[in-house]
Design a protein around this nucleic acid. Structure first.
Length: 425
RNA sequence: GGAAGAGUGGCAGAGCUGGUUGAUUGCACCGGUCUUGAAAACCGGCGUACCUGAGAGGGUACCGGGGGUUCGAAUCCCUCCUCUUCCGCCA
């Protein structure tokens, strides 16, 4: 959520930023409406405070009158307060209305893009931040896409998943299951070695958590919802990990905060279809190791690059061809100020698959969740939050199987062998 | 799931027969005096958010969340959440 102070003080800058994110003209018009409503909110607050102050004073006087036995005088003053009280009720409800209207408007605005974000509307407009300059995998004749490899080597059963639950819930078996476990352990170990605290959070969160990281109300339809208990299945570990610091005031010495967590992720993926959802490309449940950072605003962009390096290291160790994109304004998520996407080349599918997204949210999430730190001057300021996948399993498994297939079988990258316990599938 | 008790400032812990209580006190923390330095002792400071003001400052709200009673509530009532103990059930 954008800060109201920023909107007020830097109206033109906010408009320019939103334009870069290609928001609709309706949303641009919101800016002036927001400023107007906030003016109203302020003046209502002032009137209400003055009135309440008056009521408080009279109430004190009534107290003293009762004590000194002047019951009649006290009762007379009660009449005065009753009238003021009625007035304050009106102001109170007007103030609440203003706040609700403001919140509803502001929450519709996406985060402002960082100055380095390229102008553009679609995925084609993304900037190739780092292209792949190594050799592309030379696939054997008759190379198969991962869903056929999964069947051929009996690694994954999509059919069994349909029996148990539905499409998008694969069942991993034998070496397929072991590969999952190996990747999770490998990613977690890499993160822990890089100084991240391993966290195992709940897989369901309450409404407040989902709202704080920005999933609600924006992605309501994308989350599985347990209505009876008002819980949401997490779409990413970002939600519980970041919410660990909801409504917190940190000391500067608490930085850096580095957390990692493995969780299954649940996404309804309403509206997806076609080749996008084939095999492991898009699932309702998949495993992911996530990195979350909470940082001082002065350092968050250095941290972002550090995270990019970390993810890059993982892909190198898995011996996968990859490229890094800097997302353009139109392709970025609602919450992000700057996002780097990682894609690996799926030779058998002849397409790039997104396997990681690393973002700086600046104060967009921390403003919602009141995540602050005490700065040198003693004042509280909003911290910056960042996160990135390191990595998402399903698509990594897909490219791993496809790119490392040979006529004899599928080779396991050396870095992973201690975890799998086997060299080939 | 049933019964009882409890949720107060960073922590501990008063207040809870309604009225200078944003809240006693202790610890922690910050500044100062003292000291070669530290400790101890003493003095002072020490919540968050919003409104207002150039600033100094002034005001409002907040004692788990929400609502109610009252001129006035941390204190009374309702409701939800959480914790503790006992009973029941169970991986």
């Amino acid at each position: 959520m954008l800060e109201i102070g920023v909107i007020r003080e830097n109206r033109d800058g906010v408009l320019a930023g939103l334009s870069k994110k290609n928001v609709s003209p309706d949303q641009l018009e919101l800016i002036d409406k927001i400023i107007l409503e906030d003016d109203k909110r302020k003046s209502t607050q002032t009137s209400l405070d003055n009135l309440l102050s008056k009521i408080n004073k009279i109430s004190d006087e009534i107290g003293s009158l009762f004590k000194s036995g002047k019951i009649d005088d006290a009762n007379a003053m009660k009449q005065t307060v009753a009238a003021l009280k009625e007035e304050s009720r009106i102001l109170e409800s007007s103030l609440k209305d203003s706040k609700d209207v403001l919140e509803e408007m502001i929450i519709q605005l996406p985060n402002l893009p960082h100055s380095s974000v390229p102008v553009g509307k679609k995925a084609e407009d993304n900037e190739i931040f780092k292209a792949w300059d190594g050799p592309m995998p030379a696939l054997v004749k008759g190379a198969l896409p991962h869903w056929e490899l999964a069947e051929k080597y009996n690694l994954i059963s999509f059919k069994d998943g349909v029996t148990l639950t539905g499409s998008g819930f694969p069942v991993y078996k034998g070496k397929g299951a072991r590969l999952q476990r190996a990747l999770i352990s490998f990613f977690l170990d890499e993160a822990v070695n890089a100084g991240y605290l391993e966290v195992q959070p709940p897989l369901m969160v309450n409404k407040e958590s989902a709202r704080a990281t920005g999933q609600l109300p924006d992605k309501e339809g994308q989350m599985y919802h347990c209505e009876k208990d008002e819980f949401y299945l997490i779409p990413t570990a970002e939600v519980p990990l970041t919410n660990l610091y909801r409504d917190t005031i940190l000391q500067k010495s608490d930085f850096p905060i580095k957390m990692t967590g493995y969780t299954p992720c649940f996404r309804r993926e309403a509206g997806s279809y076609g080749s996008d959802v084939k095999g492991l490309n898009r699932l309702h449940q998949f495993d992911k190791v996530e990195l979350v950072r909470i940082e001082h605003p002065d350092h968050s962009y250095d941290v972002l690059m550090e995270m990019v390096k970390h993810v890059e290291g993982l892909l190198q160790k898995l011996e996968l061809p990859y490229r890094i994109l800097r997302l353009c304004g139109g392709d970025m998520s609602f919450n992000s100020a700057l996002t780097f996407d990682f894609e690996t080349w799926s030779a058998a599918q002849e397409r790039w698959l997104e396997v990681s997204s690393v973002s700086n949210f600046e104060t967009f999430q921390s403003n919602r969740m009141k995540l602050r730190f005490r700065d040198d001057d003693g004042k509280t300021r909003l911290a910056h939050t960042l996160n990135g996948s390191a990595l998402a399993l399903a698509r990594i498994v897909a490219t791993l199987l496809e790119n490392h297939q040979t006529s004899e079988g599928i080779n396991i990258p050396a870095a992973l062998r201690p975890y799998t316990g086997f060299d080939t599938i």
